[in-house]
Structures are given as structure tokens and as C-alpha cells.
Write a protein that binds this DNA or RNA. Structure first.
Lengths: 238, 238
DNA sequence: ATAGAATTCAAACGAGCGTTTGAATTGGGC
DNA sequence: GCCCAATTCAAACGCTCGTTTGAATTCTAT
């Protein structure tokens, strides 16, 4: 299946086609976010991008490869920025490990910047990522795990130093919860409708959201380890 | 479209067909969880259930209605149990409001019970719910929000009394984060692969998971409100 | 035993899907 | 001005989808 791909674009991969490719990527970002991967047809996608139907297969190979390109285009720089921010933090602190607050901030700030930058897809893209996290399609899951593995490992080490009372396993779970809250929050949009009211204006929304999310996550991360306090009354309410 | 539905099942809605209907619901639960709504075809579904292809349309009308039935079958009793547990808690406490820990427990216990009960779909079903939360399909979002609205409102009131330092709006956000961490955690399966290690055996997994999730969430809920402490160093790391 | 309703079944419908093809068109280097 | 590769295009291929149909079958109440 993958072997029968055309030999056409074998000579020059990137040429003058940047415009068509970008138009496809932009339309894909929006439509994948709105309808999901499966429910977005290449016909509606190419129509929205004002390009020929065959252009997707010509420039990206398959629909799946297009999807991965949509994610890579913005996730790679964002995760790169996260790691750089974290390393700056560690360098500045010298021998003293950075605080939980600062480490978490270095995770959230690049996401916030991306959300604010309309030229880079803005909120749309982050919602797309949040949804991709919950997509059952195996190729999406494999792609995301490999895409995030390095960054998460890096942050796990940093958090371990800032939270010495947590075992490696305990921290793995907590980072899992943190990623869950972040993904879910970023996937947002209609999820807000589960609750009654939403925030006021639209511009302050992003920043306020993260300023509310951060204290919640910091407190959760700093919580005593399992077994440190009484076992928590999880068994039957009487 | 909805008007052209057959007049066949107009006389008796539930008859001896329970067996076929149940087989369809069980197969749907598993396949929707594994592949998502869009990617699950009625042909593979009816084949797995060993029923005729037309049986789904005959018993449930459309594929969407089947999906809603899959969710309703288990969500209704679970949310009912949650509310009853919460009301018991409030009745027992008399005038004193229940603690955050106990309120949260009354949310998690019914989910945990359901996860343990293989006859009611077990973990499969909770993963399905977790994924449904992130599904972009409008009919799923509308259904879920109406399905949870009552329960969430009920719990918001209870949490408000237990967390008097939080404004209603602040709590709305925190409950949003809580639901995010829960959904994401329950959707689990491959999400675990994002991280290195997983828990040991398989039976203790569920309980251990919730026993780890609960302290995290309690600490997050109890965190000081925005503005109570310094604004948290979210802006640039220097 | 039989009438009538409920259910099952095989077959087909029309539509939409991702992808491929080969010809037409474009655009830069000689 | 011409050539050749890169790109665009209209059309089609083969396939799968959700749903409908009408006959065959099973079930139930008389």
C-alpha cells in the first residue's frame, strides 16, 4: 500500500508549491479541529483550501501523512521552546533546582504563546491537539507518543528534583493527570457548555484560563504522596 | 429525515427482542471504545454481535441513536448513584457541609464500582465515556452536556459549601479541570504509553489509579483562589 | 390451529470516501 | 524560444458506508 506511492515527487520535495501546501495545511488544521480526522473528507478540505482534490495526495502522500504534518508544523517548535525554557531555568538557578511553579510555567508559556499567535493557528491548533490526544486511531496515538516522549521525560526529571517526596512512579501518574487537565482544557470550546457560565471577554480568556489552571496543577503536584496521610476515605460513605 | 423512519416498531417498543438488542449494545460498547464512533461500521458491529445488518436500524433507528443508547444504559444509573451518595452524605452531616474529600469520593466511587463490574461493561465503558468527551461530533457533545448537566450543577453547590474561599466562577473552572483529569485518566489505555512505566498488576490498577487521582484533585480544589497569593510567575522566566 | 404482529434476513440503493491516472498547464534554466 | 521537470486538473476506480425494502420467519395470543 505504502509501496505503490507515485515516484513523481521523488526529485524535489520542496519547490515553489509552498503556497498550495500551506493553504492545505491551514484548511486541514481548521477542519480537523472542527470535525475530527475521520469525519473530515479530502473533498471538503481541498474545496475549502481552493486547491484540486489530488493536491493532498501529491504534496503529502496520504490523508494520514497530512494529519501528521499539521501537528508537526506547530508541535515541534512549541516543544522545542518548552525544553529551551526549562534548560534556561536550570542554568539560571545554578545548583538549586527550579520550583514547581517555574517548571510548570515553562510548560504552559509556550502553549499560551501559541494560543495567542493567530499566525500560527492560535487556539484552533491547541484544540486540535487536545482532541488528537483522545483520538482512538492507532496512527495518531503512536505519532503523539513519539512526538511528546522526549519532552515528557525531560520534564519528569525536572519535577522529580522539585518534588523529592514523590517516587518516580507517583510522579508519572501526576504528570498523567496534569496532561489530562491541560489537554481537556485546551480542547475546550463546547466543553465549556458543560458548565453554566464562561469567562467575560475573549482576549483575556486564554491568559485567565492558564492563570487559573496553574494554581490548580501546582497544588495537585505538591500534594502529599499516597500513604503519607490517612488513606483518604474512598471506601463507602458510612 | 427523521420523519421517514419506519412505522414498524410503533406498537410495542420492548418485546422479546432484548437478546438481540443487548448483543448489539455490548458489541457497540466494545467497538465504539476501540475505534471511535465514526470509524466503527455497522457491518463490523452487527457481525461481531452475530445479528443481521438491518437489526441496528430496526431496534435503534439510526447509528447515532444506538450510540446514545450505549451511553445512557450505564451513565444514567451511575450518575443517579452519584447524586444519591452525595445526598446521603449531606443528610448524615446535618448542618455541617461534607468535606471536599467526601464529596469527591462520592463522585469517584460510582465510577470505580462501574469499572469493577464486568457485567456492566467494566473499564471498557469508562474509556468510552472518556473518549466521547473529546469527540467533535456535535450530537455527542450535546448529548453528554445534557446528560451531565444536572449532576454537575448538584456537585457544584456541594463543593461551593466545602470551599467557601472560591467564587462560583473559580469553582466552575476547577470542576472543569477535575472533569478533564478524570476523563483523560479513564480514557487511558494507550495514553499510558505516553509515559514509561505503568502500575503492576491489573486488578489493583483501577483502585490504585483512583487512590492516586483523588489526592491530586483534592489538593487542586483546595488551592488558594486566584489573587489570594502572588500572581504566580507565569510571565517570562527572568 | 391460525391470524396477526414482531422480528430476522438477503439484497440492494445511492452516496461519499481516499486514491490513482494521464493529460494539460505552468515555470525556471539553457 | 525551447525543454523538461514540477504542478495542476478533471475524471474515474474500486470500495465501504448507513439505510431501506419486501419477503421469509418466528413468536404470541386466541
Amino acid at each position: 500500500m505504502a509501496a505503490t506511492r507515485p515516484a513523481r515527487r521523488s526529485v524535489a520535495i520542496d519547490a515553489t508549491s509552498a503556497d498550495t501546501k500551506t493553504r492545505i495545511l491551514d484548511a486541514a488544521e481548521e477542519l480537523f479541529m472542527e470535525h475530527g480526522f475521520e469525519a473530515t473528507s479530502l473533498r471538503s478540505l481541498t474545496s475549502a483550501a481552493s486547491v484540486n482534490l489530488a493536491a493532498v495526495n501529491y504534496h503529502f502522500g496520504t490523508k494520514e501523512e497530512l494529519f501528521q504534518m499539521v501537528l508537526t508544523r506547530r508541535l515541534d517548535p512549541m516543544n522545542q521552546e518548552r525544553i529551551e525554557l526549562l534548560e534556561t531555568l536550570e542554568r539560571e538557578g545554578g545548583s538549586r533546582a527550579p520550583s514547581v511553579e517555574r517548571i510548570l510555567s515553562s510548560m504552559l508559556i509556550p502553549a499560551l504563546r501559541l494560543a495567542r499567535d493567530e499566525r500560527r493557528g492560535g487556539k484552533n491548533f491547541l484544540r486540535l491537539v487536545g482532541r488528537a490526544y483522545a483520538d482512538p486511531a492507532p496512527f495518531i496515538r503512536h505519532f503523539l507518543s513519539q512526538q511528546y516522549a522526549g519532552m515528557i521525560l525531560r520534564y519528569k526529571e525536572a519535577f522529580l528534583k522539585a518534588l523529592p517526596h514523590l517516587s518516580r512512579q507517583e510522579l508519572t501518574w501526576r504528570l498523567h493527570f496534569v496532561m489530562g487537565a491541560i489537554s481537556y482544557t485546551l480542547a475546550g470550546t463546547d466543553a465549556h457548555k458543560l458548565f453554566a457560565q464562561v469567562a467575560a471577554s475573549d482576549k483575556e480568556n486564554d491568559e485567565l484560563l492558564l492563570q487559573r489552571l496553574a494554581p490548580f496543577l501546582v497544588a495537585g503536584l505538591k500534594a502529599p504522596a499516597l500513604g503519607d496521610t490517612r488513606k483518604l476515605e474512598l471506601v463507602s460513605g458510612d
